[in-house]
Design a protein around this nucleic acid. Structure first.
Lengths: 181, 181
DNA sequence: GCCAGATGGAACAGAGTTGTTTCAAACAGA
DNA sequence: TCTGTTTGAAACAACTCTGTTCCATCTGGC
């Protein structure tokens, strides 16, 4: 069992994020390797898609870890801002995992996302207890709103309407303060 | 030019929303017709997908029309609630159009959605001028937040976590009042 | 130089789907 | 009943992509 060919996976990921319907021939060409070699590392197309997905979730998990959600006694809003800031640039990864239909029944992927949701859920609950977040709404709903907002923000960035650097602040005020009044 | 076979399209839509990767044979079987007949109405798979998508957008447009966004001199919040209530049940349609990659470069579809966004944009701007909605955020961002929130709410419904009847109220308070405080 | 491992190129078969055609049968309206 | 239309069944060719195999080549370490 050879080591994971990290750089090959990186460039294959990039190619597949850009055009997810690409054939293996195209992916191999984009990665600068022959289809044979690509096939040696990832025996089937599904294996490649899954590897790309796992690789993407790796980065998402790292973003969560880097945000340090469980910093004790700290402002939940600051932690939230760090998380959003780290998550927004991962829009392509999130979109790939979300839209690729053949990943729908990959149980392991969903489990990893669920674990991340649980992390945020903990942060949300602490925010609720600290009086920073509304306590009259269930935590899972706030988590869902958060996830949806991140995705929506990235879509606007992708369309060129939203400047990446503006996104975290805009997201945070929209989420926390709402659009009313 | 025969009339549009509405009922066939309806059931084909239902089948494709349920399993978008289904082969034409499966779609035809689900629709209770032969593959030949299906192929007579929609010569290519892409034509069928596009018809299903257009049919879905038809329903979305009708939801917008029924919500009567341009009721003059009325509370923007009430109009917004009607729109959200009408839109949430169309989650499957929205998901199909959003996730089906072969629809990405169907220019006409995007134009129709853009037109709907413009409608909401008008409502939002009126709400901003009336002091019901925040005026310090661009209208397109509020529209984007709205769309994203609808989609997110339907995902929670689809997962069985959110009761459909609870969705509009939950959405409205989350959007308008935010999750902070 | 030698060798093990990895790579590239090429060709191949197989599967699955799609799009097409033909013909017979059912159907609906005049 | 006659007729024109619609449908179903079947078979067909074509295509694309995938997965596999074989062999020549290159590379890096010993």
């Amino acid at each position: 069992m050879s080591r994971t060919p990290r750089s090959l996976l990186d460039v294959a990921t990039e190619a597949l994020l850009a055009s997810p319907g690409a054939s293996l021939t195209e992916v191999a060409a984009a990665a600068g390797v022959s289809r044979t070699t690509l096939h040696r590392h990832y025996p089937t197309r599904q294996a490649l898609l899954l590897a790309v997905a796992e690789h993407s979730v790796d980065r998402v998990e790292r973003a969560y870890a880097d945000a340090g959600l469980d910093a004790a006694g700290e402002d939940a809003e600051a932690a939230l801002r760090r998380l959003l800031t780290a998550l927004i640039p991962l829009g392509p990864q999130l979109e790939f995992v979300h839209r690729e239909r053949s990943l729908d029944d990959e149980h392991g992927l969903h489990a990893r996302f669920d674990a991340l949701d649980d992390l945020v859920s903990g942060l949300v609950r602490r925010g609720q207890q600290a009086g920073v977040l509304r306590a009259d709404l269930p935590a899972w709903w706030l988590v869902s709103s958060l996830n949806g907002a991140v995705y929506g923000a990235w879509e606007m960035i992708d369309l060129g309407r939203l400047a990446p650097l503006d996104a975290p602040g805009l997201l945070l005020t929209t989420l926390l303060d709402g659009i009313g009044r």
